[in-house]
Design a protein around this nucleic acid. Structure first.
Lengths: 216, 216
DNA sequence: ATTCTTAAAAATTTTGAGATTTTTATGTAT
DNA sequence: ATACATAAAAATCTCAAAATTTTTAAGAAT
């Protein structure tokens, strides 16, 4: 059992959830204490994560969690719209019934969670499930596009997007709006209307284009 | 003078020009002999290059130059069209005179080289200049798009594209076609016609969409 | 002849210590 | 007080050897 994979994925998760502060230092030596391995091993993993854009590396001055930057959020949103629209349209063309089934299933799970969160007062324990469900829905949208490169690129953008958004406050007011959005994207995709699908993906993400995405 | 930067950029260049064969192994220990540093340092750099997509890394079985794959070429071309069109259109909107000047200059240099290559029988010694000029032209197209993330992403795709194309045979038959293409992209961009510019970028890259891009 | 074991060789990964660089702290001069 | 130089501390980077894993080779059994 190589501990490396664990360390990699554990750090990845901690970087996307609000465990580290924006801009905080990531010292391999200190992190390595938490895992049962040496600093060099963590250092190597930090390099790999900086490849994903989840960690900033600067020559001779180590690793840091990327700062929160409104402009970066806009850029990431813009690219998500571009890649996710393109990927979804390709999926509509190539995906067939199998893709439609996967998408329906992914949406069913997501909408189930969202409704529960919407109903509850303190949805803290549902957050992790929501994160993974929302990720799965958006990944499923582009899953049949036929381009691993596009999917991989979208994965990076999506992760950085999540990282920028890291929500310490977990009231999730936007959930009720999201329920509508996700449903309307599903409908458009299932109807096969490419332009409508593009529009709805755009609408869904557009609120992050203002630079005013609120964090608390 | 940190040797690291040199090693990084040197390896990067060797990976994009035809110095290594597709699929060949990259052993840190052996590579480190060529540079004045240890295997670990090279290993670290190989990780960074695998972040760029120029090197494949597999757990417990080291680093390799990515195989040549017609399908990957298609995917990369598709993404280049997507990102380069989008970036250029944004540059048209935001770039202003400064961008137009840069683009004109970049095209002037490129077209100068291309004409010389077209005229010559053995253009071997002009290849390096052509590579950097062509890269600069395409980078300049998107340079005023206002999104560092987009530019960075395009840079990776472009590098992988070049790597897939690695031309050992250096007759450059396609150059004469390219002269026309580049000129028509410039014209469209300078005229401010967004759709026309998109079309011409598409046309320029479309020949790589068949999977039939010939290598020798 | 093919498959399965086992042993040797080769390659990859991890590690901790030493070398280098940056940061912080302290003292001195303007 | 501010700016500059120097020294101490801390952090980062490099390295080569040890530990692990994979690959290759040789031999035995079906």
């Amino acid at each position: 059992m190589p501990p490396e994979i664990d360390v990699y994925h554990d750090l990845e998760k901690r970087l996307i959830t609000a465990e580290f502060q924006h801009g905080s230092k990531l010292r391999a030596e200190i992190l390595s204490d938490g895992y049962g391995c040496s600093a060099s091993t963590v250092r190597e993993i930090l390099f790999r994560l900086s490849a994903e854009g989840l960690v900033n590396f600067q020559e001779q001055r180590g690793f840091r969690v990327p700062d929160m930057a409104p402009n970066k959020m806009i850029e990431l949103t813009h690219l998500r719209i571009l890649l996710e629209s393109e990927g979804t349209v390709l999926s509509i063309r190539k995906g067939g019934v199998a893709w439609e089934a996967r998408l329906t299933a992914a949406h069913y799970k997501l909408s189930h969670i969202e409704k529960r969160i919407h109903a509850q007062n303190d949805p803290s324990d549902l957050i992790d499930i929501w994160f993974s469900s929302e990720k799965e829905f958006h990944q499923t949208l582009i899953s049949a596009c036929g381009s691993d490169t596009l999917k991989q690129m979208h994965g990076r953008i999506y992760a950085q997007f999540r990282q920028q958004l890291m929500v310490a406050d977990r009231r999730f007011d936007f959930i009720s709006e999201n329920i509508q959005h996700h449903a309307s994207i599903l409908d458009a995709a299932m109807s096969g209307d490419e332009e409508l699908t593009r529009d709805r993906i755009h609408i869904h993400l557009a609120r992050h284009l203002t630079g005013m995405t609120l964090v608390s």
